[in-house]
Every structure is written in C-alpha cells, then in structure tokens.
C-alpha cells in the first residue's frame, strides 16, 4: 500500500521508499526510513499536499510524492 492511499488519522510503518535518486535521498535524510512510524495528520483543503507526523515532527509531502513510499501495518 502507498502512503498516499492512507486516510486522515491512520498510522503506518514505512516499508520502502522509492523514487529517483536525489528525491529518495532527501526523503531518507528527513527521516523517512524503513521501519519508521508515520501518522497522517491531515490533507490540505485542496486535497494535496498531505501533512504527516514522523519522528515527532510535522512534515508535508505532495500526494504524488507520497505515492513513492510504500507502507505496511496500517492501523487507525
């Protein structure tokens, strides 16, 4: 399942980060690592981007960027 498919209020564990080299590296540096828990705080009023909480801070990501992140163990 992709991160972009999660609904507001759901938590999941990051399984894999895809995408091209520098984008992927940037995500990893911001803490999007395999095994990290991520919580979907909300979607922006225009449905894009998404606000996430991970490693204790809030970060936003465009929906098509979140689609590169595979998650598992989705729970609400």
């Amino acid at each position: 399942m992709n991160l972009s498919e999660l609904k507001q209020g759901q938590t999941a564990t990051i399984a894999h980060v895809g995408g091209n080299g520098s984008f992927r590296r940037r995500l990893l540096e911001m803490g999007f690592l395999r095994g990290t828990e991520v919580y979907v705080e909300k979607y922006a009023p225009l449905k894009d981007p998404i606000e996430l909480i991970l490693k204790g801070y809030h970060v936003s990501l465009r929906v098509d960027e979140a689609a590169h992140i595979q998650v598992e163990n989705v729970r609400s």
């Binding site: 091209n20 520098s22 984008f23 940037r26 995500l27 911001m30 981007p49 606000e51 801070y57 809030h58 970060v59 936003s60 990501l61 465009r62 960027e65």
Partner: peptide, 12 residues
Amino acid sequence: GKVAPFVMELPP
C-alpha cells in the same frame, strides 16, 4: 530540472 520535492517541515 527536477522540481524540488515538497518535503517541507511544518514547524511548531
């Protein structure tokens, strides 16, 4: 070129 990813922190 690559559009900068929108990995933006929403600080407190």
